[in-house]
Simulated assay, not measured.
Amino acid sequence: MTALQAFGPNLWIADGPVVTAGAGFHYPTRTVVVRLAEGSLFIWSPVALSDALRRAVEALGPVRYLIAPNTLHDRFLGQWQVAYPAARIHAAPGLRQRRPDLDMAVELGEEPPSDWAADIDQVPMRGNLITTEVVFFHRPSATLLVTDLIQHFAPTWFTGWRAWVARIDLMTAPEPEVPRKFRVAFVDRDAARRGLERILGWQIERVVMAHGEPIHANGHASVRRAFRWLA
């Protein structure tokens, strides 16, 4: 687990532990910490809260917003809610029903709430049977935050039959791609296109993925290529 690393103005990333999902697939975890203009912290896709990470985060400011960008990235929300009871969970559509044990303050919608609208824009990518992921754009650093809709694993990350599945699914493609399973799950392509149109309207320079090395330049072109199948 790494300490916070500066990635752009008022934006830091930290890698958490590798977790095991369905069928024994292992996934890295990554969080993003944004310090908003008014000083409070926006925690995107929280990872396991180690003592070191907690100290690093608290040195930046008060934790106010815990963000679950989709229904697949909720594993560590409870840890953060216990550690920061004053923070509010803002969850992707559908997560409230899956996690009644958590106090979900707000369901993420089409527009950013006033709490962070000055710094961060957002759009839900609707029409997907797997999950409705809410994609975020941090304006000061020109950084797109995407959890599962774009992935880019190293070719050697998976082994055995899982490596074969990952290759077919485009998880280990030569460049970042939308995995095939998510492409097929977009049963409402019109809704997906509306979301993508808004995303491509942002001046994206950098991209942080939960599952892939960050993109430091020409992010807009990378996102457009990843979604070329949706055009």
Rank of each mutant, 00 (worst) to 15 (best):
L36K: 02
V33M: 07
V18R: 15
P28C: 11
L36A: 05
A48E: 05
W44S: 02
A52L: 05
G39V: 02
T31D: 07
A14P: 15
A52P: 01
W44M: 01
E38L: 07
G22E: 09
T20C: 10
I13G: 14
L53V: 04
H26F: 11
Y27L: 13
L41W: 00
V19R: 13
G24N: 06
A52M: 07
V33Q: 07
D51T: 08
S45R: 01
V34E: 04
A21P: 10
R35V: 03
S50D: 06
A14S: 15
D51G: 11
F25L: 12
L41R: 02
V18S: 15
P17N: 13
A23T: 12
H26M: 14
A23F: 14
G22T: 06
G16H: 11
A37R: 08
H26L: 15
P46S: 01
F42W: 03
V19M: 12
S40A: 05
A21R: 14
Y27S: 13
A23C: 14
V18N: 13
P46L: 01
S50N: 03
A52R: 04
A37W: 05
L53T: 07
R35N: 03
L41T: 01
A48C: 03
A52I: 07
A23E: 12
I13Q: 15
H26Y: 09
H26T: 14
V33G: 06
V47F: 02
L41I: 00
L53M: 03
R35I: 02
S50E: 03
G22Q: 09
Y27R: 13
F42Y: 00
T31G: 06
P46A: 02
V33D: 06
G24E: 08
A37H: 11
T29R: 12
V32L: 12
L36Y: 06
G16C: 13
D51Q: 12
G22P: 08
H26W: 11
F25P: 07
D15R: 15
T20K: 10
V33I: 09
V33S: 06
A21I: 12
V33W: 04
T31L: 08
R30M: 10
I13D: 15
S45D: 01
R35T: 03
G16V: 14
H26G: 10
A23Q: 12
R30G: 09
G39I: 04
L53E: 05
L49W: 01
R30L: 11
T20I: 11
G39D: 04
V19Y: 08
A21F: 13
I13F: 15
I43C: 00
V34N: 04
E38W: 10
A21N: 10
R54P: 13
V33K: 04
S40E: 05
R30T: 09
F25A: 13
T20H: 11
G22M: 10
A52E: 08
R30H: 09
F42D: 00
R35S: 04
L49P: 01
V47Q: 00
G16P: 11
A48I: 03
R30N: 11
V18Q: 15
S50I: 07
